[in-house]
């Protein structure tokens, strides 16, 4: 299943490992405006749990969706405030 979101930016952190996917996602989402969605592309399998945990524990962001295709983990994070 392919997610269809109106993503504003794409962050490519393929090959980067913990903690960089989360840390770079945070920096990238800071640059967005409220309501905009960031697409994060990662190859770190831990990013599924980590970005989910980060989004639930962080104010102002919301995890819209996650999916895996061809060893790439895609995360969609919306800035909510």
């Amino acid at each position: 299943m392919s997610a269809e979101f109106d993503t504003t930016e794409t962050l490519d952190v393929k090959s980067a490992s913990c903690p960089m996917p989360v840390v770079k996602t945070k920096s990238a989402i800071d640059e967005l405006a409220e309501g905009e969605i960031l697409e994060v592309l990662a190859t770190d399998s831990g990013s599924m749990s980590d970005i989910d945990g980060w989004a639930s524990g962080t104010e102002g962001v919301e995890l819209v969706d996650q999916e895996e295709a061809d060893d790439v983990y895609k995360h969609y994070v919306r800035k909510t405030e």
Partner: peptide
């Protein structure tokens, strides 16, 4: 360093 940068990402 990993925990510090991650915690900073959590705000």
């Amino acid at each position: 360093l990993i925990l510090a940068s991650t915690a900073a990402a959590f705000g």
